[in-house]
């Protein structure tokens, strides 16, 4: 079938997913992005959020929470480079809440507009997404 392609989701700690997929919906910098087979080459930044993947059988979906990263789309394959990635059922909600508190504190201490503040905001968004996603799951 021509309408599938290879998707790799890699983090520094492991290869999260490497499989034939039909579609990927990722939280792009300028909004949600859907990637189907044959998409034009694309390089984008991803914001913290949820990646929804439909596997090659067309039914199974996989939800992965990422903390932001990059996505490269080429003719043959799509690669998501994420700092952290978790399947929804792997999320440890107590840890996520602890991270949220830590991120809030970091944001409060950082100077507005600095690189620290930007990092803190990202951590905050990631923690929030994780909590929301695991509550809904």
């Amino acid at each position: 079938m021509a309408s599938q392609y290879t998707l790799d989701v890699v983090t520094p700690e492991r290869i999260m997913l490497s499989d034939q997929v039909v579609s990927t919906v990722a939280p792009g910098y300028e909004g949600q992005l859907g990637i189907l087979a044959g998409h034009a080459p694309l390089m984008t930044e991803l914001v913290p959020g949820e990646v929804r993947v439909t596997l090659a059988d067309g039914r199974t979906t996989s939800h992965i929470i990422i903390s932001g990263g990059f996505m490269e789309v080429t003719a043959e394959r799509t690669t998501i480079l994420a700092d952290f990635a978790e399947r929804i059922d792997e999320i440890d909600i107590t840890r996520a809440e602890a991270d949220l508190a830590a991120a809030r504190q970091m944001l409060a201490e950082a100077d507005a507009g600095s690189a620290q503040a930007a990092e803190a905001k990202q951590a905050l968004a990631h923690a929030e997404t994780r909590i929301r996603a695991s509550r809904n799951a």
């Binding site: 520094p12 300028e30 034009a40 694309l42 390089m43 984008t44 930044e45 990263g69 990059f70 690189a115």
Partner: peptide, 24 residues
């Protein structure tokens, strides 16, 4: 190189990529 669409733009992507590169 493949003729990429960059979103938002190469500079922006690069500037968030660089710190991560160091971390890696």
């Amino acid at each position: 190189k493949a003729d990429y669409i960059f979103e938002p733009n190469p500079e922006q992507i690069l500037s968030s990529l660089l710190p991560r590169y160091v971390d890696t």
